[in-house]
């Protein structure tokens, strides 16, 4: 680049004077902005974003503490019927006993004692009720009370293998599932819930049973459970495969 100082203070860069430079530079920047508006960003950045996600997962797993628990702010109201309901099937998934037989939750994978637990079986296991926040990936929160079996209790009765570092929660809502890191699953506020606000869970919120934990974003908390599989490796998930973060921890 040739910079020429002419006269007292005018600078010309490659034949452009300062005014040209400002006008051209300004239009270039504006054009870049208009192109960037509402865009997905350059394709070339995808690798960097993936790299950042992997690094973020390791930061988030290091940050994770079993002693960190979710506390509902004093004065916060329950969401009640304002709790949004969602599923990926075209209509509310309902377990039809006449077609599929009695519902049971299969707990399997890297476990010494695989089990099939009916709703009665689940209710006979130690029960907890947690009034906690629901953190949705969209940014809203909702306070609800979830009743069920602590996940750690289930892991104990099936005698989960220490090699099982991941858990996959699978459902009968199409092929919806989400896999978790074991430490989030073993958090004391993670429950396999069959009750909501003192009543049995309704189909709108994942009946007969769903996983519920305030340490994960809503989409990680699989509803309409059929299987809990202990795994040596992560197994993605419905929204994870769509491109949301696999970890989804709060």
């Amino acid at each position: 680049m040739r910079i020429v100082r002419t006269g007292r203070s005018f600078v010309s860069i490659n034949g452009m004077d300062r005014r040209d430079f400002l006008i051209r530079g300004g239009s270039l920047v504006s054009a870049a902005f208009l192109a960037a508006c509402n865009s997905r960003g350059p394709k070339a950045a995808d690798k960097l974003l993936k790299y950042a996600e992997r690094k973020n997962i390791s930061v988030e797993r290091k940050l994770f503490r079993h002693t960190a628990i979710d506390v509902v702010q004093s004065g916060a109201h329950d969401a009640g019927n304002k709790l949004p309901s969602y599923y990926i099937s075209p209509t509310v998934p309902v377990w039809d006993e006449s077609v599929r037989g009695k519902w049971a939750l299969e707990v399997s994978g890297l476990v010494a004692n695989p089990l099939r637990l009916t709703l009665d079986d689940l209710q006979k296991l130690p029960q907890v009720s947690n009034r906690v926040n629901h953190y949705c990936v969209e940014g809203w929160t909702a306070v609800e009370t979830w009743t069920g079996v602590p996940f750690s209790e289930l892991a104990r009765v099936v005698r989960a293998d220490p090699q099982a570092l991941y858990v996959d929660f699978q459902s009968f809502d199409d092929d919806y599932h989400e896999s978790w890191d074991i430490e989030s699953a073993m958090h004391k506020q993670t429950v396999v819930a069959y009750g909501l606000d003192g009543k049995m869970l309704e189909p709108a919120h994942g009946a007969p049973a769903r996983v519920y934990s305030p340490v994960k974003l809503g989409y990680k908390n699989t509803k309409y459970l059929t299987k809990i599989v202990f795994l040596p490796q992560a197994n993605g998930g419905y929204w994870t495969d769509m491109g949301y973060e696999w970890y989804g921890g709060v």
Binding site: N38, R40, G41, A45, L49, A52, N56, V137, E245
Partner: peptide, 19 residues
């Protein structure tokens, strides 16, 4: 307004934001 936003969809914008 969408033209003020970046990332096109929620998941994409989150990846950009967290990177």
């Amino acid at each position: 307004p969408a033209w003020l936003t970046f990332g096109r969809w929620l998941g994409g914008a989150r990846h950009w934001h967290f990177a």
